[in-house]
Structures are given as structure tokens and as C-alpha cells.
Design a protein around this nucleic acid. Structure first.
Lengths: 239, 239
DNA sequence: AAGTGGTCTAGACCACACC
DNA sequence: GTGTGGTCTAGACCACTTA
């Protein structure tokens, strides 16, 4: 681990165990540089991380303060989550029931999202994911068969992401997600066990590789009373 | 404007007008440092910005590439939007209809979200916002009367955020938002003009000041077919 | 005026990819 | 081995707050 990460970790601990108290000034960058025996730039990089996490804020000319809300959200989900439910729910028991697994030519929507032409086939995967708590999520996934080679029922039953990362060696670059509410389809009613007038929360996402190629377009449908989506937005710049 | 921002802007332009082509290598940091007559560290800071925006990605030992998806989302909404609809919809005509404007003791939920005790009064504001396009949003807002002094009907009819920033001189630090689907209440049905089985998308948010004090807890309710929420998640680290 | 954080430099060393 | 990006340094100057 690099220095600035390790320093950020140590300072984060001091905030969480309240050695540095809520709302108070923490030592200035020069003192911290002396304490940790590093240059001031390295301290600043460590503080940059904590500022992005919403633990501290800095006022030029004044000093660095612990956010009043530092403890409040400390156990929250991370701002930037990995794609992939298996990873997100690490440590929990996840069952996948395959409802559909096939290859087909992409619809216009899928063509557009994955930057494909009409004759480049995609996998179409519909899975019901059941987390140990009983949470049920219906997932519709589309992936180019060119990019994700050798997908099998066995892999689809487990974690597709693990396969893509570990077997294929592809690296994720990020994702665009769109969240909206929808009426339940008959699929939803059957598998999510919801009534005709129960709303559904749909998170549709396009996941990109590091080089920007779109890898996956998926829609995950959740019971309205089971799952929300949290976004943390910390301003990192003045006004 | 500082150097690294101005350099980031110039390189961004080259990507968007395709002087640096999609998927191709851009000049290495040393060459860029020479071209712009700055140190390499300054170039790196400029590239950090573009990487966060999802325009480029870097491979240690190899070089810096333009993301294949760089042009695709260039006109998308920003990742981090300011809180406040008036600001978000800048340039559009927004009508606010006040449905309720009063002070009261906070409910338990509001106490928790705004870190108040049961006898610290809050404003309760219910507004119907109508954007020129016809989009209707029902907003329930709670703010501490201690923090936001002197709120009046006139201000509430316009932009509360402008008042807070410009008149009270308070600076925003960020927000936590939670998005979920819900069934319409009778309020929703009346003001959003939706049917009893139409889902509603609710974005609830707590807005913080720079020092971490919670300023506002609000729930904005939208017709399910009118509004979604977009999140951009660009990975800035390896793996 | 003194002290703080933000920027920038010139140069060093390292980890890694590619040849 | 060569070249790339990532980290780190020691020091400088600047913008800003506070007194």
C-alpha cells in the first residue's frame, strides 16, 4: 500500500474513534507531515481521500475540520460500488435461478447501449437472484458474445462477474446507471411475488471496461418495498 | 483558473473534437508537460480530472488512452448535481405552487435526519413544482428554523436555495440521496395527476453544509413515467 | 502579520507493459 | 532495456482567514 493511503487510513481511524472530535480542527498539514515523516504533498493526498469520503472539509486560510456528519454515515455503502450483485452482497448467501439463458440478435435498445450492429449476437440472461435475507431481484442481462466468450449455464448460475474478471481477465472501468419506477410486468408479478398495483424499482445499467467498451446492459427489477438506491454526493470544490 | 483545470479543458476539447481519436493513445505526460510548459505533476492532475469524467483511462507502463465511450455520454447530466431544482433546471421556467408552508415540531424521522431534538422547530414546506415542459414534482421539505432564518412565503415561492446561498451565505457540502419506488398517496394522485396504480419515484435527500451540519431533509415525488435518476460511476483505481 | 490550505516545480525512484 | 504512468520529496509562491 502506498503512503498516502496508509496515512488516510490512520487519520480515518482517529476520526472514527473520536481522537479527532466531530467539528473540531485537526492538526495542520505541516504538523501531520512531520508526524508521519512525509512531505506535505503526501499529507494533502491523504486528506483528499478523506474529503471525498465526506469525513473532513478544508477551509483555505483556516484549517481542516472533522465533518459534523462524519460518524453518521460511516457504515454506509460506498459511493462507488462494484458492479455485480455477488460482489456487492459479499458474505451473504446468494441463490441464482436461471429463468432464461440464450443467445439472440440484439434489439435496437441493446444495440444502442452496447454499441453493436444488428447481427452481432448477444447473450440474453434472465435470472432471479435470492439473497439469504429473502430479498428477490429479477435481472435481465445482455452481453456481447464476442466480448464475453465461453459463458455457460454453470457460470451464469454463479457469478458472471467473477468469471469475467478472473477467467477472462477483463477490467471494469465504470458504469452508467439509471433508476426509475415502473409498473410490474407479468414476469415481475410471478417471480417477485408482487401484486398488480405494486410498483417496481428498476436499475438499468451499462457497465464499461477500462478501455471504454460497453460490456453489459442490464435491468434489475426490485420490489418497491425491498430495495432502495443510495447516492452520496460530496462536493469536492468550493462553491 | 488554475493551470491544471485549464489544461484539462484544452485536452477535453481535443478529445471531443476528435483531435485525439477514440480509443487511441494520447501523448505521454512528459510530452504534454513540454507542450504546455508545466511540470509533469501538473499534467497528471489535469489527466486525473479527465479520468474522473470517464474520458480517458491510463495503463501504467503503457500509456493514456481515450475511452471508447468518451463521446457517447459527453452531453449527459453531470455526476454531481447541485441540490435544488431551480438550479438544476437552470434556464427553464419553473413555477412553484405552495401547498403548505408552516412551522412545527419535527417527527422522529425528521429529528433523526436533521439531528434535532423534539422541541427544535422546523419549517414544513410542501410545494408543487412545474417545469416549463409540464413536468410536475411534489416536494416535501423540512429545514431547521434555527439554521434557515427568515424564510417567507415569497422566498418559498421562488428558490429557497438561492436565498440560503446568497442571503444567508451558507455553503453546501453535499447530499445523501435515497431513491425508491412507492405507491401514490392521495396527495400524489391529486397533484401529480396520477392513477391509484401508477408508481411514484421518490428521491429523498439530506443536504449538508460544508461543515457537515444537516440543512434540509426533503422528499421529491415524481410520476414514474416522467423522471428517472442517472448515476455515473467511473472507477478511478486499478482492479 | 501570521498561519492555513492550494498550486506548482524539478527531479527522483518505482511498478509495470512492451519489445 | 526502454518507456510509460504512479508516487514522493523539498521547497516555493499564492489566496485566504483570522487576529
Amino acid at each position: 500500500m502506498v503512503k498516502y493511503e496508509s496515512i488516510a487510513e490512520q487519520i480515518r481511524k482517529r476520526i472514527l474513534n473520536q481522537s479527532y472530535q466531530i467539528g473540531s480542527l485537526i492538526p495542520d498539514q505541516i504538523s501531520l507531515a512531520q508526524e508521519f515523516n512525509v512531505s506535505r504533498m503526501t499529507i494533502k493526498k491523504a486528506l483528499d481521500i478523506l474529503a471525498m469520503e465526506g469525513l473532513i472539509y478544508r477551509q483555505r486560510g483556516s484549517g481542516t475540520y472533522v465533518m459534523k456528519s462524519a460518524l453518521l454515515h460511516s457504515e454506509d455503502v460506498l459511493v462507488h460500488e462494484y458492479p455485480g450483485l455477488t460482489r456487492q452482497m459479499e458474505g451473504r448467501d446468494i441463490q441464482s435461478q436461471i429463468i432464461e439463458f440464450d443467445a439472440e440478435f440484439p434489439s435496437e435498445t441493446v444495440q444502442e447501449q452496447l454499441m453493436l450492429t444488428e447481427n452481432q449476437p448477444v447473450y440474453k440472461i434472465v435470472r432471479l437472484r435470492i439473497v439469504d435475507s429473502g430479498l428477490r431481484i429479477l435481472e435481465h442481462t445482455y452481453m456481447s458474445t464476442d466480448l464475453v466468450k465461453g459463458l455457460s449455464e454453470k457460470i451464469v448460475k454463479g457469478s458472471i462477474y467473477r468469471y469475467i474478471q478472473e477467467e477472462l481477465g477483463l477490467q471494469f472501468g465504470g458504469a452508467y446507471r439509471k433508476i426509475h419506477a415502473d409498473k410490474p410486468t407479468s414476469y415481475d408479478q410471478e417471480y417477485l411475488n408482487c401484486k398488480p398495483d405494486d410498483p417496481v424499482l428498476e436499475v438499468s445499467q451499462v457497465v464499461f471496461l477500462k478501455d471504454g467498451r460497453p460490456l453489459e446492459y442490464s435491468r434489475s427489477r426490485n420490489r418497491y418495498d425491498a430495495r432502495g438506491y443510495t447516492v452520496v454526493d460530496v462536493r469536492y470544490k468550493d462553491n
